[in-house]
Design a protein around this nucleic acid. Structure first.
Lengths: 337, 337
DNA sequence: CTGAAAGCGCTAACAG
DNA sequence: CTGTTAGCGCTTTCAG
């Protein structure tokens, strides 16, 4: 920049203004500056600009795990909104660890990002997290899980509605003994369980404790949990699974036992991972619109950043969508009976 | 920082040094500074630090698509190496578009990232890309695809070996008519095709043009392509698929036609996406160790950044690994015959 | 329309 | 061990 000014015999300021076409500048001068800049392959130093402008045009994103398809989708949605707006995304992974999460937030704040989007590692967020966010003046939006005690912007899914929708669908397909395979201790899981119970109550069905099986690892709970259910004297005829991988595992267990899906046992998952269509039995599921969550959160955050006066906390819940595939399609059976 | 200095009656420099425990500082003074810093909830401004240190502790990462499981895995590997080293990752998506890619590189350079990891959008990279990277003094590593004419660091997979390995496996399982379903026009695809042909040649089998079916969309080529193959008078008895989704589609088509996998037609994919085990028929595959690619690239880049004198270009090829599941397991059949 | 002065928050290099 | 001086690359403010 100094070089350009020297070469053209004008002041630094003139160049600076020309480069940002900041009004008050001669047409002719501007053209000359721009031309020389291109020749010199000039590239503005965003770091310096950030320092004085107090605006970094960076957004911090913290998620528990990049490889969980849902979060990758969320991230993609966010990138798609912010990149064109001239923002870059700084991504960190909390690895499901609240301490790492806190450390990464700290690092992002130090970088003076313009805003923060966080998918919290835990429902029971450390008080520090809540406090740090509340007291700081950093715009932020939480997504996916809503930690207890948090009062700011939030974008998520109606997890209860997922449970409700899935369970009700099974009931409508003629299931009378609906079980639930779950991974406990996270906000989605709790909401889904609640929805499951509500649906049962609504249709006058019993909630049996042994029909709810919890496991710790997504990978195993579907298969192992289903095997447990199969041993019950009063075997369930429908299973609502926490997510699609669990559902896939459940189907595997049912088929291995020589039973049929959905005739003997109907199965539904949640998340609509894109391969659900290719399973042994195509899996019915509830679509969570993760990408929409990302987009919505990004737009909300962008509003917060632009608007001078702060926006009062908004809670946006995206509506889940039922997707019916083979694994729960019993209506034909019911009709022909 | 100024506040701390004032409060303690010391100079700015003293504070600065204490904060970074930069030798030459009194134990006592240091403790006092650190204490006051904590009280004031001081957080160093990394932007300012970057400006003078000419080191941003940020790494730029550009990938074609966050949602492709392979790239998410790569990204995770990179994050896992760099976060603990105090680096943050700025992520951009090229959306498979060379222009966007160029624009994002430009943006990242402007931010003075310390290094760049790029999974190029195209094999035939724009000359601009090559030139920009070569001429700039920005450390960089390319991954996954190696653009023609590029001469810097590269980390990828031996795509030929994938084709070779998969095809040879099918042959060893007793297949004599091995077909290949592919998505053309990208570097992995070309390498795999070459490996496929080499394997056939090595075992004295014909390469029939109608056994190689190309499609444009991953989602459809597996299913549609397989249907084409099934109509051939001399039907193949083994199919090597470009990746697992294609393989899953192929299996679907075979089963629909009333044939059995692997007895009538054995199928193998590539990529080892984690659900391959849950398909109608568990899919054999070649594991690409995407995570290892990320880790390797990150380590290499980190070396480049640390070392003063530049490292001569390195090409690292990760070795793929055969994973045998139901979809290709015919040996039992062969043995019992 | 153009430019001179001051400073963003921090640090490297040296002098006390 | 501590402090002074200078400046990173850019922008804001205000005076020509």
């Amino acid at each position: 920049m100094k070089d350009i000014a020297r070469d053209l015999g004008v002041s630094l300021m003139t160049v600076s203004k020309a480069l940002r076409n900041h009004g008050d500048i001669g047409e002719e001068t501007k053209r000359r500056v721009l031309k020389r800049a291109r020749e010199l392959n000039y590239r503005p130093n965003l770091i310096a600009r950030s320092l004085v402008a107090r605006r970094s045009y960076m957004i911090g994103l913290i998620i528990p795990d990049l490889m969980q398809p849902g979060f990758a989708e969320v991230a993609k949605g966010i990138v798609r909104i912010f990149n064109p707006l001239g923002y870059q995304i700084v991504i960190s992974s909390s690895e499901q660890n609240p301490n790492t999460e806190l450390r990464e937030i700290e690092a992002l704040l130090g970088r003076s990002v313009d805003g923060l989007i966080i998918a919290p590692a835990q429902v029971h967020a450390r008080e520090e997290l809540i406090k740090k966010l509340r007291d700081g003046q950093m715009p932020h939006v939480l997504i996916d899980r809503m930690p207890t005690g948090f009062e700011g912007h939030f974008v998520g899914v109606k997890y209860e509605e997922i449970g409700m929708m899935a369970t009700e669908h099974l009931i409508e397909q003629g299931c009378h003994r609906v079980a639930h395979l779950r991974v406990p201790a996270n906000s989605p899981g709790i909401g889904q369980l609640r929805g499951y119970r509500q649906a049962l109550a609504k249709h006058g069905l019993d909630t049996r404790a042994d029909y709810v099986v919890s496991g710790h690892h997504e990978d195993s709970v579907g298969y192992q949990g289903m095997r447990k259910l199969l041993q019950l004297t009063s075997r369930p005829d429908g299973v609502f699974c926490f997510n699609d991988p669990v559902g896939a595992g459940a189907i595997k267990a049912v088929l291995e036992a020589g039973l049929k899906v959905p005739e003997d046992i109907a199965v539904i998952g949640a998340g609509n991972v894109h391969y659900s269509d290719l399973l042994r039995v195509p899996l019915s599921t509830i679509d969570l619109s993760s990408s929409l969550i990302g987009v919505t959160a990004a737009n909300l955050l962008s509003d917060c950043i632009e608007s001078k006066n702060l926006i009062s906390p908004r809670r946006i819940l995206v509506t889940p969508r039922l997707i019916v595939r083979e694994s729960s399609k019993r209506s034909a059976v019911v009709e022909s009976t």
